[in-house]
Amino acid sequence: MFVEQLINGLAIGTIYALVAVGYSLVFGILRLVNFTHSSVYTLGAFMVYVGVEYLHLNIFLAILFSLVTTGFAGVMIDKMGLEPLRKKGASKISAMITTIGLSYIIINCLNIAFGSQIIRFPDLFNYGTFKLLGATIAWQQVIIGAVALILLVALSIFINRTRIGLAMRAVQQEPSAAAINGINVNMIISLTFFLGAASAAIAGTLIASYNQYLRSSMGDIVGLKAFAAAVLGGIGSLPGSVLGGLIIGVSESMAVYKLGGSYIDMVAFSLLFLVLLIRPYGILGRKGSTKV
């Protein structure tokens, strides 16, 4: 039981990490908590469903379709909602309220189109189970964890090793200096939104296939937990997000193992509360200096 729960926690944890990375990427560049992220996550899963159910695509094509459409939805959120505000020099709170409003629009449009009830979602990785240390483990969990992990590695290589990644890091440090050096800041921000939305779409698809259902409210709690994970690890730091996601995933499944299921949602937040009492900037976060 223990080993099963541990593996389960690690698998869910990597998915939290994948969503948390999206929060972290946008926060790193705009210093903005992107409240649309949880609705984009839901949108991603729904797009796969649309691809399979309405466009009759092969499942991999459907995932690709979802990646592209959701990614562009992320870009549209930035171009139509946030870029005008940046140009106007509006306050951070305006930008944040805009993201809350946009996420409300997306979720309720999904509600109108598909209804708020549970919709069956195909099980993508149904390859049975195997035995490890006397525990029965589903291949599904292992594959989900592995896919999320591969994506995380790919993202970190992209950010740390490529020229575009370098530009992203430059914008993160100082947008105006980056612009002086010939970096198209708005393009980089849109790209960040694309990456964040695409990774959220994959995470949403993985979770939907894990639960074998999807519904318009599926993003609420996962979004909040992933945000908690990003903050727990230190928001703006990629390794921090991954660590935070894993900690929350594993501690949740341990709580199910020890305490039973009803308090599962409280674990993440109580943990966050305790960690921030001791380390106010998250586990891997650094304290920034206050400029006057």
Binding site: G81, P84, A90, G101, N108, I112
Partner: peptide, 24 residues
């Protein structure tokens, strides 16, 4: 319009976005 309740929330979202853009 089939789901007035959902449309209400869509309108709420639009109000937020539009107000923030034009008259914060």
């Amino acid at each position: 319009i089939s789901q007035p309740e959902q449309w209400r929330f869509v309108i709420y979202g639009m109000i937020m976005v539009i107000m923030m853009r034009f008259r914060p």
